[in-house]
Design a protein around this nucleic acid. Structure first.
Lengths: 253, 253
DNA sequence: GGCAATTATCGTCACCTTGACAATAAATCC
DNA sequence: GGATTTATTGTCAAGGTGACGATAATTGCC
């Protein structure tokens, strides 16, 4: 690790402050066919060439973290306007994560509806959705410490569903209670009673808002379409801090 | 911002990856006289000379984040072995936080019993406990974006008490139910019914463990002394992930 | 069109948790 | 020794939850 010359960031310590390369990684989660999926790219360069990894890249000078995360994801998926909810997950490193040297990475979490990924982004790295279970059972292996980051991300997602209205971030603008329930079932890996879930979801004040419209064309009785209620919807540019009270508890054992 | 020459961290992007100075800050919270307090230092150098700030400093090469946070806190408080629970809070920046240039900071949260701070650490910066309310009502102003970080830390602490056994991190090894209750009251800023709190705290499986011993010397009936139950105690070196289920909900409105 | 199949939604009931508050226990204070 | 203080155990009504029955409103098939 190169020691950088004095540059004004002293003399708070006697040791020269190290500068680190800083990357942002994004754990983009979605639900496809009732299963939790994560967006992964195939690395084209060493280290870990040919391995799967989380999308991400270096933070540029003058960039905010969230901004960088959104930019990298957009670049690598070829998707201009990312749907869903993006938040910071946590930072990892800088020691021993990258064989090339110390790198600090700030991981992010995107909860999004199932959007199509353009087969190759500007980096020509292939991006695609993969079932999270394939990583958890060892069938897929990830580069760097990305399995650990994915594990933390899934844990965060699970608890987000309990305490926040963000389960709806996996759905589109409008959705049925059953669609929302399959999100909960996929993320938590459990089955929920449709009747009790319906009562709880529609009965929680400030969560869902009936659009008055219904589905049509599917088998069975048409379902009412809901959207996130005003209080639970993110304010323009601001992250959602709305809280589900009381929580929609996931069954434990 | 200086651009560093090519050093192997390419060619994933066409843009030179910026290296950033990385600092760790620590929001150390404790409860003193029934009030939530935060550990602050008085800055001796510009910028913000003479202002109050969170303890912290640069991450050194080869250091982990938690490690750096613990080291900085120990240096600035003069306390060798920090009590309590330390975890990562989140990262801020790098843009526009420091008048000297872009700096990324990884904030940490320490929940600790009320430990005495040695009046001056090795940096000769004065460290002391201050009521959080004094910052929130504007009577005290903090340097950098530290008020925002403190706000996020307090919010995190509030929800930690609901969903984890970490309220006990504010107490010593052994504590009474009433001591634990004053922690909850201080952090949440509410009053709780002693009888209902007692029922909930002692009735939650895997939370408290009766030591069999009692307090003595205080006014009133002696109180039973408890410790964190085995399942809720942090494993050696590992962070506590134990969860309080069902949660000990704070009153909202 | 009519009936089966399918999915959505409403209802019921026993059990548990919670909040409010009364009653009792076991020390100290004077 | 009685007043005071704090801890702990109960009690009860109201509301939430899990299990599951019943009904509603479509599509699919003949």
């Amino acid at each position: 690790m190169t020691i950088i010359a004095y540059d004004g960031f002293m003399p708070e310590t006697r040791t020269a402050p190290a500068r680190f390369p800083v990357t942002v990684d994004v754990v983009a989660l979605t639900v496809r066919d009732g299963e939790l999926n994560v967006l992964l790219i195939t690395r084209l360069i060493d280290p870990f060439r040919g391995k799967l990894a989380l999308p991400g890249g270096f933070v540029l000078a003058g960039e905010e973290l969230l901004e960088a995360a959104g930019r990298e994801l957009a670049e690598e998926t070829g998707v201009e306007h990312l749907p869903g909810h993006l938040e910071q997950l946590g930072s990892y490193g800088p020691k021993g994560r990258d064989p090339r040297g110390d790198v600090l990475t700030v991981a992010h979490l995107l909860l999004a509806p199932n959007f199509p990924v353009l087969s190759a982004g500007s980096d020509a790295e292939h991006a695609a959705w993969y079932p999270v279970s394939q990583v958890q059972n060892g069938a897929l292996q990830l580069a760097f410490d990305h399995e650990r980051i994915l594990g933390d991300a899934v844990e965060r997602a699970k608890s987000k569903l309990e305490y926040s209205p963000l389960g709806a971030a996996f759905c589109g603008e409008e959705f049925t209670v059953a669609q929302l329930r399959t999100v909960y079932e996929a993320v938590w890996g459990t089955r929920l009673d449709p009747r009790n879930f319906h009562r709880k979801a529609t009965g929680t004040p400030g969560f869902l808002e009936d659009t008055g419209r219904t589905t049509t064309g599917d088998a069975g009785r048409p379902a009412a379409l809901f959207r996130l209620a005003g209080a639970a919807r993110p304010a323009a540019g601001q992250p959602t801090r709305a809280v589900l009270n009381p929580p929609l508890m996931r069954p434990r054992d």
